[in-house]
Simulated assay, not measured.
Amino acid sequence: MRRGRRRWATLGITAAATLAAGCGNAQESANSAALVPESALGDLLLSARDVQSMMNGAPLIPQPVDSGMDDNRNLLPNLNCLGVWHPGESAIYGGSDAGTWQAVRRQLLRAPGNDQWRSSVVQSVATYTSPDTARDFIAQSADRWAKCTNHTVNITLNDQRLPRWRSGDLDISPDHLRMPISRSAGAATSSCEHVISARANVVIDVLACAPGTLEVRQASQMADLIASHVPSAG
């Protein structure tokens, strides 16, 4: 009887170990399936029609989708404010070979003509190696953005001064940052909202600006809509 009990006990332990291993493999497969590949990034960007609708019908001309980061550190060397001022900056995200982001799709939509960028949207999505590394970027950005609240920036490009830029208070929630921004050039004023968030292994980065002094919330709405298209584990 004792030998039989030992044999059944051994079989039970083996079965439990096999079941645990199977569950672990299933979880790994589920997590891998939830990762967004580079090939799916372009589909996450909102259409020009969706963006215009969310911007209250403002006519916005979509520019070609860019597959690289931007680099404006020569205009704004203050890295704490650079990431607030403009989405998708290489000095903030780092190089794709540095083990951070893997791929990016970035697009500008702006009003026709020269309106000093008063009506514009920049949407950007970048994949990371894992959800944890995407969330780490949000945490790092929170530290930088916190050092650029209620800050005024004057930038000159080709001997011409760009609209004066002033940030507001930083709003932090889990995996989500929001900063209101105002731009002014003479009597012309525009209001902006910059939002970054993490969903699965994707960092979503949206800046929306509209003429006037009314608070802009469309960047949050766009970021949420993009996030709703990103699969998540569970």
Rank of each mutant, 00 (worst) to 15 (best):
L157H: 13
V104E: 10
S191R: 07
N31W: 13
G22L: 09
D43Y: 07
A233G: 04
P62H: 02
A142V: 00
S228D: 03
G24K: 06
R3Q: 12
V51R: 04
I196S: 02
L207M: 09
R3C: 06
W165G: 06
Q102V: 13
A21I: 10
M1E: 15
R49S: 14
M54G: 00
S228G: 03
S130Y: 07
M55S: 08
L214Q: 15
G168Q: 06
D169R: 01
I155Q: 04
S130I: 03
E193D: 08
M179V: 13
S182E: 11
W165K: 08
A188V: 11
R110S: 08
I61D: 15
A146H: 01
R5T: 01
A188I: 12
S191K: 00
P37D: 05
Q218C: 01
D50N: 09
D169K: 02
S32L: 14
L109K: 11
W85D: 05
S141G: 05
A111D: 01
N56F: 15
Q123T: 09
I226R: 10
S167F: 05
T129K: 04
R3M: 10
R73E: 00
D171A: 12
C192L: 06
S228C: 04
D70V: 03
A34H: 07
D132I: 11
V153T: 15
R166M: 09
I13P: 02
Q116F: 04
A210Y: 08
G42E: 13
Q102C: 05
G113W: 03
V36M: 02
D171F: 12
Q63W: 02
T100A: 14
M54R: 07
I181R: 03
L157R: 11
D205T: 06
L60I: 03
P211D: 10
L19P: 02
N25E: 11
E38Y: 04
S130H: 05
A233N: 10
S96Q: 15
T129S: 14
S119C: 05
Q52L: 08
T189A: 06
P62F: 02
N201M: 02
N158G: 00
S232R: 11
W101V: 05
W165R: 14
V104N: 08
P163M: 08
A223C: 03
C192G: 06
L76T: 03
G4A: 14
I155Y: 06
Q52H: 07
I13S: 12
G94L: 09
L44H: 07
A48E: 08
R73S: 09
L79V: 10
M55E: 13
L79I: 12
V206F: 05
S197K: 14
C192F: 00
E89W: 12
L11T: 00
A17R: 00
G113D: 11
N74L: 12
T14K: 02
D43R: 02
Q63S: 13
S232M: 08
M1S: 15
D115W: 06
P163C: 07
A21E: 01
D97W: 14
L162A: 10
W85H: 04
S29F: 11
T152Q: 09
G168A: 08
G4C: 03
S220P: 01
H151G: 01
S197H: 09
A20S: 12
